[in-house]
């Protein structure tokens, strides 16, 4: 571990991170460009961020995206929590293996397939496509992420604290609310943040399942870029990157802190004779 700095480490670090972040960095830098031409630097300016506020199309799309993300991540969190609880708590019920396999499947399913199948379903039941269908689609693919996060938290959950609560006169339902839920809350919150950012990001599934009047921000950006990149797009993308980054950072910090605390708990518990 403590090998210190070597040229090899340095070069691979720069190359790796450059590869990952240079494009995004460029995008951010050019969003502050004075010039209208994206490839020519003409001095620092925040005018494109101001211009965003006047672009009704982009604002509408942002509002739709935000609502979709909020509603879908909330519903997905509830459903994912229930699924995660089922998988880790109810022992070997009939079809458990199948169910747990099925909950993981959307994680690896190509988005195009998910999008297409959802589209086919909405068409089959002749459901009008729009806000609701995008939201349902986003719930579908993000609830499995929540289920995975919650389940992995519950695996290391010390059930004796639930027993202790019941022993002290707390019925099972209340025990869940007062003990289990608060303890696994960091995992739930990070699951919610994860599905929120996934929903913000999504282009493919939204394109398949949306209808008139429900254009999401990624879709809007994509369609505008085809007409030519403008600094406005750079600006809105920068904001999106910011929100996603904040969400992911908070989610991972929460998970890390929870993990560290549990590790400490275990260390102390083991130290007790």
């Amino acid at each position: 571990m403590n090998r210190g700095f070597t040229w090899f480490n340095g070069v691979s670090l720069v190359l790796g991170f450059g590869f990952l972040y240079l494009p995004i960095l460029l995008l951010i830098v050019y969003s502050f460009n004075e010039s209208k031409l994206v490839t020519v630097w003409a001095g620092f300016s925040t005018k494109w961020y101001g211009a965003l506020l006047e672009n009704q199309g982009l604002l509408d799309a942002a509002w739709v995206t935000f609502r979709v993300a909020f509603v879908s991540s909330t519903v997905a969190t509830i459903l994912g929590l229930v699924a995660g609880l089922m998988l880790s708590r109810f022992g070997a019920f009939r079809g458990r293996v199948l169910f747990s396999g099925m909950i993981y499947a959307p994680l690896v399913m190509p988005e195009v397939i998910t999008g297409l199948s959802l589209l086919l379903m909405f068409v089959a039941i002749s459901f009008d496509r729009g806000f609701v269908t995008v939201t349902i689609a986003h719930i579908t693919f993000s609830m499995c992420y929540v289920a995975v996060v919650v389940q992995s938290r519950l695996i290391s959950f010390d059930r004796s604290i639930e027993e202790a609560a019941m022993d002290l006169g707390c019925p099972p339902g209340r025990t869940f609310l007062l003990i289990t839920l608060p303890v696994i809350m960091p995992a739930i919150v990070s699951g919610w943040l994860l599905s929120f950012t996934l929903s913000l990001d999504d282009l493919v599934i939204a394109s398949f399942t949306t209808g008139p009047g429900a254009t999401t921000l990624p879709m809007k950006i994509y369609s505008q870029v085809r007409l030519g990149v403008t600094p406005e797009i750079n600006a809105v993308s920068t904001i999106l990157v910011g929100i996603v980054a904040v969400g992911v950072v908070i989610a991972s910090v929460l998970a890390k802190r929870d993990e560290a605390r549990r590790a400490q708990d275990e260390r102390l518990a083991a130290a007790a004779p």
């Binding site: 010390d158 004796s160 604290i161 022993d167 002290l168 006169g169 003990i179 605390r261």
Partner: peptide, 16 residues
């Protein structure tokens, strides 16, 4: 939760 019995757990089982 209805038994007039309380238990002190070997693992303490404190609410974290």
């Amino acid at each position: 939760y209805q038994r007039p019995v309380n238990m002190m757990f070997q693992s303490y089982a404190l609410f974290p």
